[in-house]
Amino acid sequence: MGRVDGKVVVITGAGRGQGRSHAVRLAEEGADIIALDVCRDNEIAEYPMASAEDLRETARLVEKTGRRVVAVQADVRDPAALESAIAEGVGQLGRLDAVVANAGISPVGGERPLRAFADTVDVNLTGVLNTVHAALPHLGDGSSVVVIGSAAGLLFGHGQPGPMGPGGTGYAFSKQTLVQYVNWFAPFLAPSGRRINAVHPANVDTDMIRNEAMYKIFRPDLEHPTFEDAVPGFTQVQAMPIPFVDPVDVSHAVVYLVSDESRYVTGLHLKVDGGALVNAGK
Results as ranks from 00 to 15, higher is better:
Leu82Glu: 04
Leu189Asn: 11
Val265Trp: 00
Arg210Gly: 05
Phe244Glu: 04
Leu96Trp: 03
Gly66Tyr: 01
Ser143Pro: 01
Leu26Pro: 15
Pro243Tyr: 11
Glu228Ile: 09
Lys216Ile: 10
Met49Gly: 06
Glu53Ala: 09
Ile148Cys: 11
Val38Gln: 00
Pro107Lys: 02
Ala85Cys: 00
Val265Asn: 10
Ser150Asn: 07
Asp141Glu: 15
Ser143Thr: 05
Val199Asn: 00
Ala116Ser: 01
Gly193Met: 08
Asp5Lys: 12
Val272Ile: 12
Phe156Gly: 15
Asp54Gly: 04
Glu63Phe: 07
Ala14Gln: 12
Pro163Ser: 03
Leu270Trp: 14
Tyr47Gln: 07
Arg68His: 03
Gly110Trp: 07
Ala85Phe: 05
Gln180Asp: 14
Ile11Val: 14
Ile34Glu: 03
Asp260Tyr: 09
Val146Tyr: 07
Met1Trp: 04
Ile148Leu: 11
Tyr256Asn: 13
Val132Lys: 11
Val132Asn: 11
Gly19Asn: 10
Ala50Thr: 08
Pro191Lys: 06
Glu28Ile: 15
His269Phe: 10
Leu257Asp: 12
Asp260Met: 12
Leu178Arg: 07
Ala135Asn: 02
Arg95Gly: 02
Asp207Trp: 03
Ala27Tyr: 03
Val147Arg: 11
Pro187Thr: 10
Ala186Cys: 11
Glu29Asn: 10
Val62Ile: 01
Gly127Ile: 08
Val132Ile: 13
Arg60Cys: 01
Met164Ile: 15
Val254Thr: 15
Val182His: 08
Arg263Met: 15
Tyr256Glu: 05
Gly13Glu: 00
Ala81Met: 09
Val250Pro: 00
Gly91Pro: 07
Thr206Tyr: 07
Arg40Gln: 12
Ala116Leu: 02
Tyr215Phe: 09
Ala23Arg: 13
Ile148Gly: 05
Lys175His: 02
